[in-house]
Design a protein around this nucleic acid. Structure first.
Lengths: 353, 353
DNA sequence: ATGAAAGCGCTAACAC
DNA sequence: GTGTTAGCGCTTTCAT
């Protein structure tokens, strides 16, 4: 008699002993693949006993065998979980899609923030080498995050979402921010705006660079006066400070193009303080399309967060299944949101674009 | 020579063989607890070799030994991830706090939706019996979710957040929705409103029942006319339909009390359509306090989502650590938000409450 | 300080 | 069909 049969622990040996069977038979009866090699009568007895003793195979033992954890991690920059508030709105969309996609297949996803502690402990290496996660989703990672190189060097399946897209070892799924912003700024110009303020996005993020490039490209197509705010960023405060700087520099601007909805909200707040009416006296555009009931819906474009998550999950799944060996890249279109913060300065009823 | 030393796999045997040591010594050198029993020189050699061969202990093997996974699951109702949109705003706040609290201690959290597939496969039992997760957080679970009873019967550490609070085997952390709504409705009455419409919350959720009870209790304190919408719910559409029904029934109402901010936004949208100005002609109150800069500044109260997450994580941690054996209950206060959608009908400059 | 060997819970190749 | 046995990767007791 083995020690594990004496004490209260329920394990495969306990079930086998209770039925005077070998552990191998029990193991087979419980395995979908080999269940048919066990006689129907035995199998029923075994399942009944498992039920009675509330036995289910230890998942960690299974995982050492399969050399697979059926777990993936969604790694996000620390600042996403930094404040005492909710997680980033777009991340939230991605997360919903990821959970839905994976749980269907019995794979679960952990949300992991890349903190300084994470980096010190080199958790990403432990995750790979210790077989903790089978694959990784990265959200909003920039080239500055040097751990990504180390992660890629371990060559696990990795899909980057709204971030790094030029790493040869990593698949990527990104919103087509360039086209989204290009169309938006063209619309601004088509509405007759010729004195335009810009509060740029941070150049540190891929999406930011794309948006900035699109703004420059679109504005170069039509002669106009353009003022750039001395600050860039993605938050409301950047919008407020940016607006003060722009308006101090040139109070004849008719439209402010912002890097996202939070920045646009900052402009809106500051404009309100000064009694400037939007869009009557000033137009403002955003980006991302936060889905809250707001007073004035921002003209901008919608980031396809849910679709990004779905696509990334599918891509990772295919790499986990071994269907695809080489990293893939994917670009997902954004959706223009007409909103109500862009005034048409021409005499046409609708924009001409 | 063992087979595992022939092929490319790096495991503890490989490290031991490379240094002509026993696996026991390597194991000790890598264990924080026993590292001191290995000579400094050996330990250094071992660590170097691990580094060189990129070895880290297989986490799943460790877990079978420790009988602990250092993993927890956050279980949420299916409908939270149902649409093609982001996850619930309040859940998002909880999730951020939970991740932060646990990752500090090397514990990671998986988000798991309780779908019909989950229930069919009885995943909650596998999670417990298979030692997949050490503990569970439930978010927004009602008594209708019968799997919770089964989960509790396995007696793992469980903390319910914004949900079931009367299960003797389960700890709970809830926002004090009753007090929050009670004070809000008293404020409405103190502002002189006596003809009041109510769009109730769903009775299926704990928070919903608390809010409804508070509304009834507060309204019973002062004689007034009260109309209830024939629908209850938590979304914008409920607000729109509820408002149409209320206004069709009685167009002399001066204030509509809504079950949350989404419902209030629905009322606001519908009022806008009819040219009814808020709060000049009609007051509206919400609850939850969605945090976006240009949202309608609803009079209502803020749900302490982040604090709920922190408290729940701490409670679960204490149960995991064995510091506490018995389930605890905790109530966290809400914060009144003055907003700008409640008109003071009295002649006082401020409310009298 | 180190190694041999038994053990964790489970699977799978090989007998019969 | 079923049992025996070796094995997965790692820990830990008991020697020396």
């Amino acid at each position: 008699m083995n020690s594990s049969e004496k004490n209260g622990r329920v394990n495969i040996r306990r079930i086998a002993a209770a039925l005077q069977l070998s552990t191998a038979t029990v193991s087979r009866a419980l395995s979908p693949e080999y269940a048919h090699t066990v006689s129907e009568k035995q199998r029923r007895r075994i399942l009944e006993m498992c039920d009675r003793l509330q036995y289910m195979p230890n998942i960690n033992a299974l995982r050492t065998f399969r050399n697979r954890s059926d777990l993936v991690a969604l790694l996000v920059p620390e600042q996403c979980l930094n404040g005492n508030g909710p997680i980033d709105y777009n991340l939230s969309g991605v997360l919903g899609a990821v959970e839905r996609s994976f749980s269907r297949r019995g794979i679960y996803c952990s949300l992991v923030a890349v903190t300084s502690q994470f980096l010190e402990k080199r958790e990403h290496l432990r995750f790979c080498r210790g077989k903790m996660f089978d694959g990784f989703l990265l959200w909003g990672m920039t080239e500055r995050e040097t751990f990504v190189e180390e992660l890629a060097a371990e060559s696990p399946p990795v899909v980057s979402i709204q971030g790094i897209r030029n790493n040869p070892g990593i698949s990527s799924v990104n919103a087509d921010d360039y086209s989204g912003m290009l169309h938006l700024v063209r619309r601004v110009l088509a509405c007759g705006h010729r004195r335009i303020g810009v509060i740029p996005a941070l150049e540190t993020s891929q999406a930011g660079r794309e948006r900035n490039r699109a703004v420059r490209d679109a504005l170069a197509e039509t002669p106009c006066v353009v003022r750039f705010a001395p600050w860039s960023g993605f938050d409301t405060q950047t919008g407020q400070r940016g607006f003060r700087a722009l308006i101090g520099q040139d109070d004849s601007l008719s439209c402010i193009i912002c890097s996202n909805d939070y920045v646009a909200a900052g402009v809106w707040l500051e404009a309100q303080n000064r009694g400037i009416e939007i869009p009557e006296q000033l137009s403002v555009t955003g980006a991302d399309g936060l889905d809250f009931p707001v007073r004035i819906p921002l003209t901008g474009y919608l980031s396809p967060s849910f679709e990004l998550g779905l696509a990334a999950a599918q891509m990772l799944q295919e790499r986990l299944d071994g269907k695809i060996d080489t990293p893939q890249q994917k670009l997902i279109p954004t959706t223009f949101l007409p909103g109500a913060t862009l005034k048409d300065l021409t005499n046409h009823t609708t924009g001409t674009l």
